[in-house]
Write a protein that binds this DNA or RNA. Sequence first.
DNA 1: TCGATTTTCTAACGATCGATCGGTAAAAGT
DNA 2: ACTTTTACCGATCGATCGTTAGAAAATCGA
Lengths: 221, 221
Amino acid sequence: MALRAKNALTPQSDARETKAEASRAKILNVAQKLFARRGFEGVSIRELAEALGMTTASLYYHFPSKEEIFVAVHGRSLEAVQREVMDAIAGLKDPWDRLEAAAAAHSRNFASPERTGASIAAEYYEGSLAPFRKIMVPQRDAYERLIAMLVADLQLPAGVDAKLFRLQLLGALNWIPVWHRAGSGLSAEEVARKFVRHLRQGLDPAFRQAHKKSAAARKRS
Amino acid sequence: MALRAKNALTPQSDARETKAEASRAKILNVAQKLFARRGFEGVSIRELAEALGMTTASLYYHFPSKEEIFVAVHGRSLEAVQREVMDAIAGLKDPWDRLEAAAAAHSRNFASPERTGASIAAEYYEGSLAPFRKIMVPQRDAYERLIAMLVADLQLPAGVDAKLFRLQLLGALNWIPVWHRAGSGLSAEEVARKFVRHLRQGLDPAFRQAHKKSAAARKRS
DNA sequence: TCGATTTTCTAACGATCGATCGGTAAAAGT
DNA sequence: ACTTTTACCGATCGATCGTTAGAAAATCGA
């Protein structure tokens, strides 16, 4: 019945329960790709099962419902992008450079058809997913706090609301998969960097000065 | 059978065919609201028919398919926003003021749950709507050209791609309905204006100067 | 008021939806 | 060697999907 109900200190230690977890991961990988392309309601579980080379009944061995698959994809995607953003900003000191690197990592995760894409927006839809918003919103909040922290470090000029600034940037980034096609012109990451720079030129008082006197003296802690 | 197959110079001149057109308009109004909230695949024609107080068969008297209803909503919405944008910029001379007014009109049309909302994005989905993209894309192109014209008038600094700038702004605007809720804080139009101003402060060289010496001397042709 | 046309209805079609049933072969546990 | 658990499958459930045929009702010119 339940997939994980055994005692924590079971004798057979290590390589156990790998089969089910491998299947689960494979399901999530394929589901992520399909949901990103056609949305939650645009993908049937038969379609997903066929893409996986299994039957729908097998899917329901690993997940109790279609919605739970989506929630798992949603959570895994947000954990991945959070990890990649933290890696991307690790070595950088300047807050605008950190935001730019974060934006690039964000787009690398969400703007590709291989990745989550539009599914991150689907949580706002009404319908059968609505009861799961109380699971998905906290999943997203942790990532949102990370971005909000990066924005807070910018020391935006008075009169510019940090929340509005964040929503403007993330909106522009999240819309990239709608129009961007791989191979034509700039990559999604490059686009994301340009978006940050467009805003930076306006909202960072120091940037304009530094950029006007070429670009030499930039090396502080 | 066909709704409009009669000769152009029919005797009974004026107030004819009003009934069918009124039903058509009513269908499109309600469909627009539902599609905006739940997307194309999230709305069933039974749901739409019930919201209209009619049966599904009556729907099929006025439209040949669900997809055609969506295409009609799509086209009508884009015509409406194009008209409102043109009205909004009519009296304005400064190109950044014109863009700001256009952004406000854009958001008024797309950011409300009463209006089109997310449906404008659904055209990019695969699925049963895909064959209709060759109808919807030209519908959208006319509006896109209007915005592109407004952006071209900005005389953006070298190194800033006009197309990328447009996509950044429209992305941020189109994402507003995802997070914005009526009644809480700023209206969607006010948010749109702030977004333009965030970008303006960076990309319009004259703006910073004019804003630094308070805001008095702004009245040219 | 009659006959024709326009509009809406009842009833149902086949297809597909998410989900569940009982069963089974192989592996793990004892 | 025997039992239990794991991981999957074939078959099918009731519900709902978009759509349609044909009859009833509403509307209208005459």
